[in-house]
C-alpha cells in the first residue's frame, strides 16, 4: 500500500525535480492522515459559469454536501485542498486557474465539473478562439463529472469517489 502510494506519487512528481520520497515511512500514520483528509475536504469557492450554480445547490439545503464533510467552501485558495472547476475555462482565465492551483497547499485535488471543464463542452469547436479545451491541460484532474451542467447528485458522487481514492492513495495529487 505504502509502496504503491509512494511510487505513484514519485512517478507523478517525476517532472518535479525536487521531489524526494521520505526515507522513513510511517504507514499507519499516513493512512490515518489520508482518512482524515478524505473526510474533511475543503473546496475552493470558485464558480465560473452554469456549473457553479449546481455546485451551490449541492452545498445548499436539499443536497447538503456537509454530510460528507465537503461543505466548508473556502474563499481563499490557501485554505482549500479541493478545487472544483465549475464552468467554462477560457484562455484569459486559464493562467489564473493555474495560479490558484499553485497557491493551494498540498496535498490537493481537482474535480472537473461539467463538459466545459472536461473538454470545452458545447464550445468545443475546432475554431473557437476563446475556450480552453479541457482544464486538464493546465492542472492535473482527479475526477471528471460529465453533464451540462451535472446534477448536484453527480457532484456528490464525485466527492464520494474522490474520498475513496484519497483513502486508497490513488489520486493525482502532488504531495509536498
Amino acid at each position: 500500500m505504502s509502496e504503491s502510494l509512494q511510487s505513484t506519487s514519485h512517478e507523478e512528481a517525476g517532472a518535479d525535480t525536487d521531489h524526494i520520497p521520505p526515507i522513513v515511512q510511517f504507514l499507519p500514520l499516513q493512512k490515518a492522515l489520508d482518512l482524515a483528509r478524505a473526510n474533511s475536504l475543503w473546496p475552493l469557492t470558485f464558480g465560473i459559469a452554469c456549473c457553479a450554480i449546481e455546485m451551490m445547490a449541492a452545498s445548499a439545503s436539499r443536497y447538503d454536501a456537509d454530510r460528507f464533510g465537503a461543505g466548508v467552501f473556502r474563499n481563499s485558495p490557501r485554505q482549500a485542498d479541493l478545487m472544483i472547476v465549475a464552468g467554462t475555462v477560457n484562455l484569459k482565465m486559464a493562467p489564473i486557474i493555474k495560479r490558484l492551483y499553485d497557491q493551494m497547499p498540498s496535498p490537493k485535488w481537482v474535480i472537473a465539473l461539467g463538459s466545459c471543464a472536461i473538454c470545452g463542452g458545447p464550445f468545443d469547436q475546432d475554431d473557437n478562439y476563446a475556450v480552453l479545451q479541457g482544464v486538464e491541460k493546465i492542472v492535473p484532474v482527479d475526477i471528471f463529472v460529465p453533464g451540462c451542467p451535472p446534477r448536484p447528485e453527480a457532484l456528490l458522487h464525485a466527492i464520494l469517489e474522490l474520498q475513496e481514492r484519497i483513502k486508497s492513495g490513488s489520486t493525482n495529487a502532488t504531495r509536498a
Partner: peptide, 8 residues
C-alpha cells in the same frame, strides 16, 4: 475588467 468568461 471583463472577459474571464468570454466563450465566443
Amino acid at each position: 475588467h471583463l472577459g474571464y468568461s468570454h466563450r465566443g
